[in-house]
Design a protein around this nucleic acid. Sequence first.
DNA 1: GTCTATATCTAGATAGAC
DNA 2: GTCTATCTAGATATAGAC
Lengths: 195, 195
Amino acid sequence: MTSAAPDPSEKAERILEGAMQEFLAHGYAATSMDRVAKTAGVSKATVYSYFQDKESLFAALVRRLAQQRFPGIFDRTILQGDPAEVLRHVATKALDREKDPEYMAFIRLIVGESGRFPELARIFVKNLAKPAIATLTQYLSTHSDYRDPEAIARILLGSVVYYLMLQELLHGREVVPFEKDRLVDSLVDLIVEKA
Amino acid sequence: MTSAAPDPSEKAERILEGAMQEFLAHGYAATSMDRVAKTAGVSKATVYSYFQDKESLFAALVRRLAQQRFPGIFDRTILQGDPAEVLRHVATKALDREKDPEYMAFIRLIVGESGRFPELARIFVKNLAKPAIATLTQYLSTHSDYRDPEAIARILLGSVVYYLMLQELLHGREVVPFEKDRLVDSLVDLIVEKA
DNA sequence: GTCTATATCTAGATAGAC
DNA sequence: GTCTATCTAGATATAGAC
């Protein structure tokens, strides 16, 4: 057994890596299993030996991305301290995701396939959106007097996500240019001054 | 591109109608020209006599939807009067779009295909998002003292769009339930109290 | 276990009948 | 002008070689 494979899951890793590149770049329907295999550096038959079919591979990939590759932004960050600084930090960190092309492509993919794969969209919400809302809501509950902290949390996150979607995903930079700092400044002012 | 006939062709209308149903339901890649023809009630050859290829048909459809079928929300609405009432009206009207499945599917389609068709995404931004931002910014400029009215406009619209996307498109209703009224109330309070 | 080769089907696009 | 029939390419999925 000198030529034994390193790890049975090593091939599965490469396949998922190849699948990620292809699905993120072209979406579900426009991605072929041939290209997944080629990108992963294995044969197509090997892909089918690890994953039942195209849908199973896609589902496995999305679960993986939602649970491992793109953990919630604030999961490990303990929010505490001055509200103005904390909120500015939160908004800025969320906006920084524009610099991660894979994350942006993941958003595009999930939204685009949310009709065909509603269950995968729910996994995305449960693993990424929900923890972000919960963490921010928790902070606002203990550091402000808002009647409805979750509503405020959704306003902040919504403003940021809308910015990313409009300016980056939908290529609005050239059509409706807008500086990130302006959004952050107004957002922090609006929320903190009121508190 | 096919030449736009002066008098609208009945056949072209039916084809676009069929294309709308199919593309909105399945996205670009998963939609076949066979099904477009069948839904439109014409032969596939007829489809190709009116539109050069699949991409041209898709582009014509998106332009049509962005320019005619889904005009900007506030284009015809003259915003004037008490800020609290106006902003509440604006937010509520925008949130009501969740009741229009075709509009929601259009959002999903544009976001999902924004990688493959960036120019169509820009058309969407130019015709729908930009006018909404501009109209609301204009109102806030004359009815509030905000240093950056456009930032406020984007915060309001972003909060609403994020709600629609998370709760409806991504099927978050069951995962992170939230009442629309709570969002509207906090949004209006936040913006008007500060003014 | 993995790959090559292939079966089967469906897609986009077109030629030719009427 | 419109439809039927068809071409060609590329898709998913699998059988069989090594």
